[in-house]
Computed example of a mutant assay.
Amino acid sequence: MKRLLDLTLALTTTAFLAFPILIAALAVRLTSQGAILYWSERVGRNNVIFQMPKFRSMLIDTPAVATHLLENPNQYLTPIGSFLRKSSIDELPQLWSILKGDMSFVGPRPALFNQYDLISLRTQQGVHELVPGLTGWAQINGRDELPILQKVELDVEYLKRCSLLFDLKIMWMTVLKVLARDGVSH
């Protein structure tokens, strides 16, 4: 049921947002050098690595680490990078990952391949068995600002409470958070 909902929503959303996606792609191309999409190595279900696309919001020489680990993340942003991140427009190419089945609309956010502490804690708690999501319970309860232990606690809570109604609640709360640009530090 969840996969069918993901496919239906991803196709509908892609069709509905096709023009804004095209505009965002053009804006990335015109405002900085490099590819329009950044393909990030992420950890998926059962700790399998997959390639997750995002609109490129950082310069091409940015180290491949979580943004909060950069000494001065703002120095790496493209001219429209801050807008793309705060509006979450940079996440729209992940609709492709949902269509492929690497991601779901709701689940724990996929860890970077080198976030060993997060991957280890999630694996110990069984969270690694979930398909990662475009949004999730931890995302709407702190996003970039959460320490790893708290993020994993929220992921475990999602694992225990996982249901269609809970997913719908998380999606609705995500829309509210994105509109308010809440919880984005860069």
Rank of each mutant, 00 (worst) to 15 (best):
M1W: 03
K2F: 09
K2G: 11
R3C: 13
L5T: 13
D6W: 06
L7I: 15
T8N: 10
L9T: 03
A10E: 08
T14L: 15
A15H: 00
F16E: 01
F16I: 14
P20T: 10
A25L: 03
L26M: 14
A27Y: 05
V28G: 04
V28L: 08
R29K: 15
R29N: 02
L30Q: 01
T31H: 12
S32V: 04
G34T: 06
G34W: 06
L37V: 08
L37C: 09
Y38W: 14
Y38C: 11
E41G: 06
E41P: 15
R42F: 09
R45V: 09
R45E: 14
N47M: 08
V48H: 10
I49E: 06
F50W: 09
M52S: 13
K54L: 10
F55Y: 12
F55E: 03
S57T: 14
L59G: 11
L59D: 05
P63A: 10
P63E: 11
P63R: 13
A64V: 13
T67D: 11
H68R: 15
Y76W: 15
Y76P: 02
P79S: 13
I80K: 02
L84D: 00
S88W: 00
I89F: 08
I89V: 15
D90F: 13
D90V: 15
E91D: 11
E91L: 15
E91H: 14
L92I: 13
W96E: 05
L99T: 05
K100A: 10
F105P: 02
F105R: 10
V106D: 07
G107A: 08
G107N: 06
P108I: 04
Y116C: 08
Y116P: 00
D117Y: 14
L118G: 08
S120R: 13
S120L: 05
S120Q: 10
S120N: 07
Q124K: 14
Q124S: 13
Q125T: 14
Q125K: 15
G126R: 11
G133Q: 08
L134K: 07
W137T: 01
A138V: 05
Q139A: 05
G142I: 04
G142F: 02
R143D: 02
R143A: 04
D144W: 06
L146T: 07
L146R: 06
L146F: 06
P147V: 10
I148K: 01
L149E: 12
Q150D: 12
Q150R: 12
K151A: 04
K151N: 04
K151W: 07
D155A: 01
D155H: 03
D155S: 00
D155C: 00
Y158P: 00
L159T: 03
L159V: 00
C162L: 06
S163V: 03
S163D: 02
S163F: 03
L164N: 00
L164Y: 04
F166Q: 05
F166K: 03
L168R: 01
K169A: 08
M171F: 00
W172I: 08
T174Y: 04
L176T: 05
K177T: 12
K177W: 02
V178G: 06
V178L: 07
L179M: 14
D182C: 03
D182S: 08
D182H: 10
G183E: 12
G183F: 11
G183L: 08
H186Y: 10
H186T: 02
